[in-house]
């Protein structure tokens, strides 16, 4: 009967080791894409090649860094790596909130608080082993999700400030506090930021197979173990995103008002 085309739990699953030759062969698909782009005059060839090169360099770099951290077996290296992730996330998110005074600080505080709380809880409650192998990739996911949600909440709240200006000032004129006057806007912003993750959680397994689970199955783990880890990931992300969204909303809201409870104009004028 010859060799099966797809082996179940074959050598790939047992070792999960790849050579750079494997990667180079995968570039064939990029060549197909470039050819298509060329043929259809999409002028995406340069962009695609650059993106692939960047991805390779960035991934290689982080691969070496993570390998270094794993080999060092040092808690401090893990912490340093997580701090660097938070820093990049805060800069990315802070740039989106730039019209606000203290934009970068807001992003840094919200992302740090949400990520730290989630990670500490996970480790303290022994949900995942407190080894670099778990803490680093889970940390990356947590920080990334916190970053997205902070950007969405912040930009949405700034838009609300402009579109709801009359209503907010009408509420202030009725002697409402800034937090009372902005409560509906705040609620809308937090909801908008959280809905994508909630919808992902609802449709998980039906519409898409998420990254952590896919990765574990590819690496040869028992699918049921993979499923359990994925459930942990989704639950922890919901918590992270909620903390990040509410913290960012609260901090942004405070920056929207002066000391005398006057609504600022962000774009000057």
């Amino acid at each position: 009967m010859g060799r099966a085309l797809i082996e179940v739990a074959g050598p790939l699953a047992a070792q999960a080791q790849f050579s750079f030759v494997n990667v180079a062969v995968a570039l064939l698909m990029v060549a197909v894409a470039v050819a298509l782009s060329f043929w259809q005059r999409l002028s995406l060839e340069k962009d695609m090649l650059l993106a692939c090169a960047r991805a390779f360099v960035q991934l290689l770099a982080i691969g070496y860094v993570i390998q270094l951290v794993f080999r060092s077996r040092s808690f401090w290296f893990v912490l340093l790596l997580l701090t660097a992730m938070v820093l990049f996330a805060a800069i990315t998110s802070g740039r989106r909130l730039r019209p606000l005074p203290g934009a970068y600080a807001i992003a840094a505080i919200a992302i740090t608080l949400a990520s730290a709380l989630t990670l500490v809880l996970l480790v303290a409650l022994d949900v995942v082993p407190s080894t670099a192998r778990y803490v680093v990739p889970l940390g990356g996911m947590i920080v990334g999700n916190a970053m997205n949600v902070v950007s969405v909440v912040g930009t949405r709240l700034m838009e609300e400030l402009e579109s709801q200006r009359r209503t907010i000032e009408a509420a202030l004129a009725l002697a409402a506090s800034p937090s009372q006057a902005t409560r509906p806007s705040l609620r809308r912003a937090v909801r908008v930021a959280m809905i994508p993750l909630i919808d992902n959680t609802k449709t998980i397994g039906l519409v898409f197979l998420p990254g952590a689970m896919t990765g574990m199955i590819l690496a040869g783990a028992d699918p049921l173990d993979a499923v359990k880890l994925q459930a942990i990931v989704m639950y922890m992300l919901i918590g992270t995103v909620a903390i990040a969204a509410v913290t960012a909303a609260y901090l942004v809201q405070r920056q929207l008002f002066t000391r005398h409870e006057q609504l600022r104009r962000l774009s000057g004028g």
């Binding site: 009359r166 000032e169 009408a170 509420a171 202030l172 004129a173 002697a175 409402a176 409870e261």
Partner: peptide, 20 residues
């Protein structure tokens, strides 16, 4: 306190801006 000022001094704007 600023909220006390705004309680004593009411304001009606050109646009009513009613709440839902």
């Amino acid at each position: 306190p600023v909220r006390e000022v705004r309680r004593r001094v009411g304001m009606v704007f050109q646009q009513p801006a009613l709440f839902p």
